[in-house]
Simulated scan of single mutants.
Amino acid sequence: MKRAALALILACMASAHAAETFTVKEIAPGNFVHRGHDDVATRENGGDIANIGFIVGTCCVAVIDTGGMLAEGRALRAAIRARTKLPICYVINTHMHPDHIFGNAAFKQDHPQFVGSFKLAQAEASRADNYMRALNRELGDEAKGSEIIGPTKTIDGTGTLDLGGRTLKLQTWKTAHTNNDLTIYDDKSGTLWLGDLLFVQSIPVIDGSVLGWLDDIPRIKQMNPRHAVPGHGPIDSSWPVALDAEARYLTQLASDVRAAIKQGKTMQQAVDSIVPEQGDTWLLVDQYHRRNVTAAYAELEWEQ
């Protein structure tokens, strides 16, 4: 009983701390973004490492990703309620990664439609056990109540959501960061929410296809939004500059991996020998570059 009471107290303290430190910025009319930490998920940052936020129409609100655990989702909901009493109609997940979805449960009381790519549910289901184990390992008791809530509305290609006086255009993409990437474009403000198709300063992470990502980038550029929200990193940077930097890293990675394969190097030899050019300009290189080499090698090894 004492242990259960202590766990409850700790969970309440974590939730209160998240609410106190949680801030959002209106980057364009009706578009509010919370800037995550440039880090991996830890107990110190509460899994708050992704950029998440919401869009307000005249009839209702759409949430864009919900953070790395229930407490962060609750802090996001509190930030919404501090600005509007309009109903929360949609919770949109840009892809399946834990730092973007584990706050979903904070919005169950609003009975929204949970929206994602048509590939999202299968991707979440196939990794659910691993994600939950990692969440409990990294965040411990603070993660209590966090859960994966799959989509109730899916997008295959393109779709629209009406918030009242504001239409959101949703689009799925070729496998890139993941196989279930989804972007949201607010036509009224010209704001494009890119999820993890755009990393700023933090190194891009491949959990899908390096070649697909490189194919997607020119299509993103053609959309030419007035504002763009990255999945990670500063929200006030020039998106064309950031997208070009991302493309350079991915292009060099593919080139280096192809060269290693041509030289007959094993995957481990490639991982040990390939270092990113201007690696000191990226954050979290040590955590993710070797993983990116592994993913690219597996993809390109049998390339014709």
Rank of each mutant, 00 (worst) to 15 (best):
A4I: 10
A5R: 11
L6T: 11
L8I: 05
L8E: 12
L10T: 12
A11R: 14
A11G: 10
A11W: 11
S15Y: 06
S15R: 15
A18N: 02
A18G: 00
A19L: 15
E20S: 13
T21Y: 02
F22T: 00
F22S: 00
T23S: 13
T23Q: 14
V24K: 10
A28D: 01
A28L: 01
P29W: 10
F32N: 01
V33I: 15
V33S: 06
H34C: 11
R35M: 11
R35F: 05
G36W: 03
G36H: 06
G36T: 07
H37Y: 14
D38C: 05
D39A: 14
D39K: 08
D39E: 12
D39L: 11
V40M: 09
V40G: 00
V40W: 02
A41P: 11
T42V: 04
T42L: 07
T42G: 09
T42R: 14
T42K: 12
R43D: 06
E44S: 15
N45L: 09
G46Y: 10
G46S: 11
G47W: 00
G47D: 01
N51L: 02
I55P: 04
I55L: 13
C60D: 04
V61C: 03
V61I: 10
A62W: 00
A62P: 01
V63A: 04
V63I: 12
I64G: 02
I64R: 00
T66L: 07
T66Q: 05
G68N: 02
G68F: 08
G73L: 06
R74L: 15
L76E: 03
